[in-house]
Amino acid sequence: MIRRFGDTPDPGRTYIRRAGAYAILPLDGRLLLTHQAEPEPEIQLPGGGIDRGESLVAALHREVFEETGWRISAPRRFGVFRRFAYMPEYDLWAEKICTIYIARPVACLGEPTEPGHEALWADMDAAARLLGNPGDRHFTALFASLNAR
């Protein structure tokens, strides 16, 4: 059973299952995050949905680059959770299956290529408090606790 975070699903609503890959990206005691300006401003773990025919890891590399401008290496699976949410950019209600990876940011190649995204760095202790959804907060806090100095 996959742990659920966030709102309880409405039994009268149809949800489309949408898999995604997201990354905890530590470097020198800080984490690389992304700020998404719309539809509501929110700080998130970089990542997103999987395109048709794409693997989780390929999606992770693509999404992190699009949202932060950084290339990553050595992704390893850390956990998974699900949440039920409305996705206004697609006009659909989704059951999001969020696979969390830990990876190393290795090279910044420029600004994010995805409109409305901005890369930002946060101290590891502060990152979990900044993140917009409870699943991201949970896994980031768990990572920080496992890596406390």
Rank of each mutant, 00 (worst) to 15 (best):
A128N: 04
D28P: 11
P112L: 06
E114D: 12
E67N: 07
P11D: 08
G116N: 04
I100Y: 01
P112K: 02
E95D: 10
R62A: 01
P26W: 09
A74M: 08
D91I: 13
G132K: 04
V64A: 08
T14S: 11
E118M: 01
L92I: 11
R76G: 06
G29I: 14
P88T: 06
T68G: 04
R4Q: 10
F143L: 05
Q36W: 02
E89F: 08
L45H: 07
A59W: 12
S73F: 13
D51C: 12
A21V: 06
T99F: 07
S73A: 15
T8I: 15
L130W: 00
F78Y: 12
E114W: 09
R17E: 15
V80M: 10
R3D: 08
A127E: 01
A59C: 10
Y101S: 13
A94I: 12
T113K: 15
A58T: 15
L131V: 10
I50P: 02
F84M: 09
Y90E: 14
I2K: 13
D123C: 03
Y22S: 06
T34Y: 00
D91T: 07
R30Q: 06
I100M: 06
P9N: 08
A85F: 02
T140S: 12
P26D: 07
R137D: 04
A59S: 15
I2Y: 04
E66A: 12
D123K: 10
S55K: 05
A103G: 14
L109G: 06
L32C: 13
E66K: 14
G132I: 02
F143N: 04
N133L: 01
L130D: 03
Q36C: 03
P46S: 05
V64D: 05
L131W: 01
V80E: 04
R13T: 07
F84C: 14
E111D: 14
L32T: 00
P11Q: 04
P26L: 03
D123L: 09
I100K: 06
P112G: 06
T113N: 09
A19P: 02
L92A: 08
L45Y: 00
I72N: 01
A141I: 13
Y22N: 00
I2C: 05
G20R: 07
G47A: 14
E42A: 04
W93C: 03
A148E: 09
P112D: 02
V57P: 01
P39A: 08
F65E: 09
A107F: 08
E89G: 09
G20V: 11
S145T: 15
W93D: 15
P134V: 03
A144P: 15
P39H: 10
A23Y: 11
F81W: 02
E95P: 00
T8D: 12
G69E: 03
N147I: 05
L31Y: 11
I24W: 06
L92F: 09
L146G: 15
Q36Y: 05
G12C: 07
R17P: 06
G48E: 05
W121Q: 00
E89N: 08
C108Q: 07
A37F: 09
D91K: 12
P41S: 07
D125S: 09
S73H: 13
P112Q: 04
H35N: 14
A85H: 13
C108N: 11
L131E: 06
L60K: 01
T99W: 07
E67H: 13
G12F: 07
A148K: 13
L27A: 15
H61V: 03
H117W: 00
T113Y: 11
A119V: 12
A21E: 00
R83S: 14
